[in-house]
Design a protein around this nucleic acid. Sequence first.
DNA 1: TCCTCATTGTGAAATTTACCACAAAGAGGT
DNA 2: ACCTCTTTGTGGTAAATTTCACAATGAGGA
Lengths: 210, 210
Amino acid sequence: MIEKIPKPVARRLAIYYRLLKEYSKLGLSTISSSSMGERLNLKSSQIRKDLSYFGGFGKRGTGYKVMELMKSIERILGIDQAWHILIIGAGKIGMALVNYSGLSQDGFVVKAIVDADKDKIGTLIDTQLVVEDVRKMGQIIQEKKIDIGVLCVPPDVAQKTINEALKCGIKGIINFVPKRLEVPEDVMVEDVQISLSFKALSFRMVHNGK
Amino acid sequence: MIEKIPKPVARRLAIYYRLLKEYSKLGLSTISSSSMGERLNLKSSQIRKDLSYFGGFGKRGTGYKVMELMKSIERILGIDQAWHILIIGAGKIGMALVNYSGLSQDGFVVKAIVDADKDKIGTLIDTQLVVEDVRKMGQIIQEKKIDIGVLCVPPDVAQKTINEALKCGIKGIINFVPKRLEVPEDVMVEDVQISLSFKALSFRMVHNGK
DNA sequence: TCCTCATTGTGAAATTTACCACAAAGAGGT
DNA sequence: ACCTCTTTGTGGTAAATTTCACAATGAGGA
């Protein structure tokens, strides 16, 4: 913990977590770094080093206990608690994220969705959530104790919209908008840029993977 | 060109491209690496070095011509051509990607969407595309000259489904499934793992951004 | 023409990240 | 108790990436 954690580590921990979940479903009780590495196309030493930043979870000669390591990574990633999510923008992406199983599984609970479009406000999504007026966002953030806002609005209103959310104390943002957001230092933004992945693929296809 | 290109470069080029598009809309004709860097929170030297791998696009004392650089990056990224896209799986994500403006804008044209679910087959999406039977995938790939498959199916059928697509000559895959796909060497896979971004955010929020 | 200013392109240094290699340690058998 | 086998945790090294720093160059004005 004293040492600085390389940035790519968090992402890999999430990958290890996913694999461990699979193993636990299969009923495996212990696992070695080398078998994980083989499965994930990573060097076993990298996995061990990544884990070692947070403590010694394994046993020499035996490996790691699947359940134990899962719980530890949950704690490290902060997903041993439930995060309250607000989806900002009921466009295609926003709506797709309501009830998206990949999120609820890991403790990210969508508590509300807001939009500015009158035609969308009041619509029932997935027989679960009603689209609310974006002007009530502040109230919703406080009442539903929202931790994370997921921004899925058109680019031209992105900054303006997120400014409102910031005023109400949001400290984490998942940004689906292809624009860099200006936020205070203590607010974390994680960008999800789907179109970048398409372009990266295109690049690799044209350049033959080099 | 002889030199090896660092992996992060392609992704940044796509970011530069996005910014240049903005500049061109604003009617700017030239731009310097330092003003781009300021805007993107990157060092100007990094931008210059990234571009220099592909040639000298700028002029000393003046900077880069917006339009010219845009066209060059288009060529480098391979988005000066249209890519034919097949969406595999008409779940939430798959449906959201049909007509997703972020894609069509940059030459990624969704030509078809397939699913295995009888209830979904035949459904009209966005008054544009009809969901087709996944068993016709091979035929569709050939007839519509599909270049890239976008995998959005449940994890347990992911590998099986992609194997079919590979048989029909797909050479590029965007993978939304939280699983590593096994593919031949000459096939490029780009993973888009939404839930990883949420976990990375959670991690940073818990660890105070360090 | 010559001087000044701005900005590129790029070797070399600095930093960050990944990988190696091996001592340490536990389990199981004899 | 000792030997063997396996696998971790980690210091040190290698590789990859970013950043620095500056010579080279073009534009514009005097």
